[in-house]
Simulated scan of single mutants.
Amino acid sequence: MLLQIKDSDKLVKILEIQELLDPNSNVVQGREQKGEEEQPPDSFKKENLVFPSGEVLPRCWLDADYRKDNG
């Protein structure tokens, strides 16, 4: 899966989808996409990633308590 770093045009290939879906994990392992050469794995904060369309990640991927009432 490809995600984009907020406020940039840089794409990141997510290595472990389960890590992305886990709301208890604040970071994911990925490879920044730069040309044809594969980049080394790096850590990316989920809060800094969006879908390539610019849409934010679902809250249930970011917040383990997303079902609790915030009021």
Rank of each mutant, 00 (worst) to 15 (best):
M1T: 15
L2I: 15
L2E: 14
L2G: 15
L3A: 05
Q4R: 15
Q4P: 05
K6S: 05
D7R: 13
S8G: 06
D9Y: 15
K10C: 14
L11R: 07
V12H: 01
K13I: 01
K13C: 05
E16I: 11
E16T: 11
I17A: 09
Q18W: 09
E19Y: 00
L20N: 04
L20E: 02
L20V: 07
L21G: 00
D22N: 11
S25V: 10
N26I: 12
V27M: 11
V28L: 03
Q29T: 13
G30N: 00
G30W: 01
Q33H: 12
K34M: 09
G35I: 01
E36L: 14
E37Q: 13
E38R: 12
E38D: 10
Q39D: 12
D42V: 08
S43I: 14
F44R: 04
K45E: 14
K46N: 04
E47L: 10
E47Q: 13
E47W: 08
L49Y: 08
V50Q: 06
F51T: 05
P52D: 06
P52F: 03
S53G: 05
G54F: 09
E55G: 10
L57P: 01
L57H: 00
P58N: 02
D63H: 00
A64N: 07
D65L: 07
Y66K: 00
R67T: 10
R67H: 11
R67N: 13
